[in-house]
Design a protein around this nucleic acid. Structure first.
Lengths: 338, 338
DNA sequence: AACGTTTCCGGTAACGTTTCCGGAAAGAAT
DNA sequence: ATTCTTTCCGGAAACGTTACCGGAAACGTT
């Protein structure tokens, strides 16, 4: 069942059928009705690859993701998928191992599938303009490190919170509550990722308040999984390093870290205050409710897609959104008696 | 940059280039090397839509999902996506509203995209053979109700736990601990979904032990979100209905329900035991650790894809996997003092 | 009556592949 | 020397669509 069959059945030319299928002008109302009826009764469905071939572009968006551990990304991915779907585009998803080159992967995907746009989610992003020029469609970096070096800002878009500032504020909350021995948990501290920015924010907040950064209190978890948070907290406790508060860079890890504290017979927040970043709906329902910096994850995901669509359909230049993270005052932080 | 350019550059015919690109025989080693080199230096990337058009099939799998609320599905979706990706196929994702027809959506997708297979995730499934005949590629129903009525079992595959049995066992655990006033929380009880099967399992376990089903203790949450669990538990408590235990059909809702109990100054498990179904990694890290029936979600997702691939590539008949759910003995259930 | 204009439509090339088929060249068997 | 295989290769049709172009018919306008 092709466009040709419909044309024959209606006694019209195939270009006429094509016109009504694409809502183009130059076709009488009478013929349009007839064609539409034939399409309906025959259950005709256009062949997308033929269309893509002649137009030499598809209606697909490529999404390349690195680091699937973090639930925050899972949530965003769901919104991104739904949002792309809702706008009538297809999503081609590509998961990358940590050692793969996301730009090269994106460029290949773009050409193979004749993508309309690309969305990068998570991961590092220290590419040069030369490398980025490999990709020839609009793209947005979603929840990436926000230091894009020498890249021309009008060439692409990005959406993410200010990770430095958010970490700075979170740590400041602990300091304001009287804490100075503040442990901190990051995926990694020197990999050009958002984790590094958050680490910088942590250090800055301490320094600003005259507190030295104690390397013994900085833990690299090596991931965003709950296990990573649990294990890291456990081993910090066992190391004997004294601390009265902890800053954890992701809710999921914080929940696991709290479990580790409980398992070591430490109360939260009485024996150790905990603050995190993410603001998952989930962490509202733990006991105590997690005190955390809420990232507007849904907004970030939705806006990323919207901006990408605007670049594709309206040809606008790149925009760089920095939505605010704001404090959720849960029950996992308390003032330290001085 | 097309196959034609490569052919010209190498001084060979385009069919020869096509042959080396597809690892077909009938090409000398010398020519193969030359072509491969030209492909490499020119960064040639084949056009997928052209290929799909002539072969009249793509390398894509359609995944249609209904009910995105449940985290359990999110987790599975991630595995499914990674698994499809890993095997070199593309995934076309379609989210459906609860009132949409998943089979019709799948059939359209299949023809538009020339899919190789279809995977249905979650939702109801009371279709007739006539309706199912709309879809012309292998398909597997993943985590669906396992009552497929009149459908011929060899025509399709399915993978999911036995929801009736799992619910039966969970409720039996509570009864064995001495409980008889057992509240229960389901998305819905009469919609041909897994929820209905679980409700049936709940009733059967009670009856088996001579306990009458008290409608006042059966709550329809109208969803799988945490809010649904919280709200439902709250209103049950406020209704004044007496109960010493609760069976909740999903971990996420159970966590929220426990929060509601806490907020009403009831201790878990001392004042109310809670058991659930899902076994999310997450619910190991709550306090108390959730007692729940662990669904092998990763296995379900992985096996679903594997089976679908076997049907596609090896032409095997439909298989129906019923992996076992097994109890995780957490800390949210305790014996009732008699 | 002759001449624009507008409205509608069909023929056809093109998109970049794969696949079929025929054939040249080289080697083996008679 | 002839014929028969085998190995390798190129030409060309086909996949189903879109877009361009040219033209017929209908309708004004002078």
């Amino acid at each position: 069942m092709t466009i040709k069959d419909i044309a024959r059945e209606c006694g019209v030319g195939i270009s006429t059928v094509s016109r009504v299928l694409n809502n183009k002008p130059d076709v009488s109302e009478e013929v349009r009705k007839k064609v539409l009826a034939a399409v309906e009764t025959n259950g005709y469905i256009p062949n997308n690859s033929a269309r893509d071939l002649v137009k030499s572009r598809s209606d697909a968006i490529g999404v390349v993701v690195r680091g699937t551990g973090n639930l925050f990304f899972s949530d965003m991915l769901k919104v991104i998928a739904a949002e792309i779907d809702r706008r009538g585009y297809d999503m081609i998803l590509r998961f990358l191992a940590t050692d793969e080159d996301e730009v090269k992967a994106g460029a290949i995907l773009e050409r193979e599938k004749k993508l309309r746009g690309l969305l990068f989610l998570g991961g590092r992003f220290n590419y040069t303009p030369a490398e980025m020029s490999l990709i020839g469609v609009p793209y947005v970096c979603c929840s990436y490190t926000n230091s894009f070096g020498t890249l021309r800002e009008s060439d692409f878009s990005s959406v993410s919170i200010d990770d430095f500032k958010t970490a700075y504020e979170a740590v400041s909350v602990l300091i304001a509550a009287g804490h100075s021995r503040i442990a901190a948990f990051f995926d990694a501290c020197d990999d050009h990722s958002i984790s590094e920015l958050r680490y910088d924010g942590y250090c800055a907040a301490l320094k600003k308040n005259g507190i030295p950064v104690d390397p013994a209190l900085v833990v690299q978890t090596g991931g965003f999984e709950m296990e990573d948070g649990y294990r890291s907290m456990k081993s910090l406790i066992e190391s004997g390093a004294g601390f009265t508060a902890a800053f954890v860079e992701a809710d999921m890890m914080a929940i696991a870290a709290i479990k580790a504290l409980h398992d070591c017979h430490k109360r939260v927040p009485e024996d150790c205050s905990v603050i995190a970043i993410d603001g998952l709906k989930l962490s509202e329902y733990t006991s105590p409710t997690l005190t955390t910096m809420i990232q507007p994850g849904e907004e970030i995901a939705r806006e990323s897609v919207r901006i990408l669509m605007d670049m594709i359909e309206k040809g606008i230049e790149g925009v760089h959104l920095r939505p605010e993270a704001h404090l959720r005052n849960g029950g996992s932080v308390c003032s330290r008696q001085l």
